[in-house]
């Protein structure tokens, strides 16, 4: 019975490994964020490795690999983001702000900064309501 369970685990892992191989090869290399997509696909391979190790009876190796695999994926993705992706694609750093003008509760950042600046039209309009003080002369 245990033999059948081991065989099932190994066959599942072989299936997952072939899926990840096909996935890596079928990605177009000119598409956007292809490195992150490949790191993601190799995550399937990591889990397949862990399943195969459990099927082979190597539980300690499976546990170690289960802990180490996310660190590898994160380290590679972080290095790619910091040195290659961010420097080659400068448009990733600037964030485009999409504001709906019809929404009365959301305003664009430029509009708010213009309102808060000293020479804004809003402040000039507020001068109509400025407070005037009366000087009272006690001698009169």
């Amino acid at each position: 019975m245990i033999e059948y369970i081991q065989s099932a685990l190994l066959i599942i892992s072989a299936f997952l490994i072939i899926i990840s191989a096909v996935g890596v090869l079928s990605l177009k290399k000119d598409s956007k964020n292809v490195v992150y997509a490949r790191i993601h696909i190799f995550g399937v391979f990591d889990i397949a490795c862990i399943i195969a190790m459990i099927g082979l009876g190597q539980y300690l190796l499976a546990g170690i690999y289960f802990i180490l695999a996310p660190f590898i994926a994160h380290a590679i993705a972080n290095a790619y983001w910091k040195k290659e992706d961010r420097e080659n694609n400068l448009d990733l750093v600037t964030v485009e702000e999409v504001v709906d003008d019809n929404n009365p509760f959301i305003h664009s950042k430029e509009k708010m900064q213009a309102l808060e600046s000293e020479n804004s039209e809003k402040l000039k309009a507020d001068e109509r309501f400025s407070v005037t003080m009366l000087d009272i002369d006690e001698g009169e």
Binding site: A14, I17, I18, A21, A52
Partner: peptide, 26 residues
């Protein structure tokens, strides 16, 4: 099933070799 996994691993190694020839160092 053990031989199936080995064959799948060989296919994946070739795929990873192809993927590592991509222009990025990562």
């Amino acid at each position: 099933s053990k031989y199936l996994v080995v064959i799948a691993l060989i296919i994946l190694m070739l795929a990873a070799l192809r993927a590592s020839a991509y222009k990025s160092t990562s």
